[in-house]
């Protein structure tokens, strides 16, 4: 029986709600951002839920103060606001202070990439992977479905340190029907091929699966990897996997060539001396104000299935030149 897809945030919030009944040290802080499941937390744990209002800078500093008092803190807001509005608070009160004082603060940012489709560039989020992975001590987690998103709860609750959870605002199809991926590895191999390996994170895993089906139909042998832990994956294991490919393609719902997942893999290849070639797929150009479906917007900026299929096909052909 297939599993009904759910919103990532609702699944994680449900895990948090259940855990709060057992663990009095979990505190939830929202920057005036809700969800039906959050209503249960607000109703059942009013002493450990607080809404700071539309005030993300305060969200972070209040969370830091609570964490210093021993609480496991979940802080919740829209992705661009919980990362960029308060970046200096994140740097100083979480990344820097956690170097000296252990604290457990988990930032849940909802609205990865273009998932707030018609809300425009203020609510869309294409810079956060770059910014958050730049911070030492931070763990950046980018799941692709609600199963993998919900599984992050155990990691968040049990592992100290600040973390950023990049969640899609839309309900995405279920990827992990047979259970969550191994969080210790940080990536999951969906298929193994010979010609090219698509490494995707978040929503772009769905695009990768779509594109891979077309590439396979065209006679190419394609590998697919879901990179859900941007900051702490099993690097040696990933190197061993990638070494067998002539080319790899990174896919992210973030600006292309501006320090995101693509930059990380260019560096990975260079530092580890891999001979594989790489194509980076990401949002081309700058901010745009056009309206349309997510798929239409993706095609406009070079990350829609048709655009990606075209780019990867050209790339794969070039590998045999």
């Amino acid at each position: 029986m297939s599993i009904k897809p759910l919103a990532m945030r609702d699944v994680l919030l449900d895990r948090i709600w259940r855990a709060m009944a057992e663990d009095a040290k979990i505190y939830f802080v929202s920057a005036d951002f809700g969800s039906p499941v959050l209503d249960k937390i607000r109703a059942d744990f009013p002493d450990r839920f607080v809404n700071v209002g539309i005030a993300e800078q305060n969200l972070i500093n209040i969370s830091a103060g609570l964490a210093l008092e021993g609480y496991t803190v979940f802080a919740y807001a829209i992705a661009p606001f919980i990362t960029m509005r308060c970046y200096e608070q994140i740097r100083v009160s979480l990344a820097l202070l956690s170097e000296v004082r252990p604290m457990n603060v988990n930032l849940i940012g909802v609205g990865a990439g273009y998932s707030y489709v018609v809300s425009g560039p203020t609510h869309q989020c294409y810079e956060d992977l770059t910014l958050m992975r730049a911070l030492p001590n931070f763990r950046v987690l980018s799941p692709s479905d609600h199963i993998s998103a919900g599984a992050l709860f155990d990691r968040c609750a049990s592992t100290k340190g600040p973390k950023y959870l990049r969640f899609d605002a839309q309900v995405l199809p279920v990827i992990y029907e047979n259970g969550a991926p191994d969080l210790d590895v940080g990536f999951h191999i969906h298929s193994t091929g010979k010609d090219v390996c698509l490494i995707a994170t978040g929503y772009m895993l769905h695009t990768a699966l779509n594109v891979a089906a077309n590439l396979t139909a065209a006679g190419h042998s394609v590998g697919i990897i879901d990179l859900f832990d941007i900051s702490n994956f099993a690097a040696d294991q990933l190197q061993a996997v990638l070494s067998s490919y002539a080319g790899i393609v990174t896919l992210e719902e973030g600006f292309r060539g501006r320090g995101g997942v693509d930059s990380m893999f260019f560096e990975f290849i260079a530092r580890r001396g891999l001979s594989t070639r790489m194509l980076n797929i990401g949002v081309e150009g700058g901010y745009r104000f056009e309206l349309g479906s997510r798929e239409e917007l993706h095609e406009q900026v070079g990350i829609g299935p048709q655009s990606v299929l075209s780019s990867v096909t050209t790339f794969v052909q070039s590998l045999s030149d």
Binding site: Y27, D47, R48, V50, Q57, N58, I60, N61, I62, S63, A64, G65, L66, A67, L68, E69, G70, Y71, E88, Q89, V92, S93
Partner: peptide, 19 residues
Amino acid sequence: SLGHGVGVATGMALGLKCK
């Protein structure tokens, strides 16, 4: 970096009350 202490202290005060 100035301007962070009041916010963090406020979080600590909230945490102390809660526990």
